[in-house]
Amino acid sequence: MLLRKLLTGTTVLCLVILVGCSRGEEAAQPQPPPARPEGKSVDSATAATIQGRVLYQDGQPRRNRIRMAADAVCVQQHQGPVYSQEVALNDNGTLRYVFVYVKGQALAGYSFPTPTEPVVLDQRGCLYTPHVIGAQTNQEIKILNSDPTTHNIHPVPQNNREWNTSMPPNANPLVRSFPREEVMIPVKCNVHPWMKTYVGVVSHPFFTVTGEEGTFEISGLPPGDYTIVAWQEKFGTVEQTVTVGASETKVVDFSFTPGGSTD
């Protein structure tokens, strides 16, 4: 009798909890943007520009080889060995995938419309392309899966909502956004543990990611004093203060070494 009661009770409890907890991949709906007072806009006639390069100071960094054997489809996407993009050194001694942005305090009082064009992040060859992206708060990020294999995409933010969604082959693009500033949000694929990307989210359009020339240009800035920050995945961040006058262009270079960074 007691046995039957306990078994029935356990079964009912499990069913209730299963039904209660059973949620598939609930779509993490973009959260409404926080209320923001209307501010002034930048006068394009006096807008300034900051440009420069991000240099690596210590020869050739050690590259980690990625082992893709866990998924034959990933292996087939590449002709030779694949290396981690954690430290991507260009031929000219500059670094690729460095997120360069303006710290927000100097821009208080301005408001910037959210871009209507989404930032595109692709999963191709079992790697994220590009390896680092930037987006404005609430700007749409369009995530694609160009691989004939299953991925899951899982951002691990501190200030925004964490979510985890699967993307089978030929899945429709996934569109998400982050409502709060956060530099940087790591994003990973738990199916393929070598797959990592980072998203820099700021409340203004003054950011960029270095490419194959290792250069950056931030334009359209109102004249003023700014702190420019360069973030590199392995070496961390380095800051420089810059003053730009009306319509002025200033050059600021950053340098990173394995032990940290030098301005």
């Binding site: 059973s22 598939g24 866990a70 034959a72 299953t150 899951n152 899982h154 699967s166 738990n190 543990p193």
Partner: peptide, 24 residues
């Protein structure tokens, strides 16, 4: 680090037998 390789539960990718690749 495969704890979240399958994002749903109790099903796996909406089925009982998902493609067994990578950390899945």
């Amino acid at each position: 680090d495969a704890g979240l390789a399958v994002p749903d539960w109790p099903l796996s990718y909406g089925t009982w037998m998902p493609p067994m690749v990578g950390n899945i």
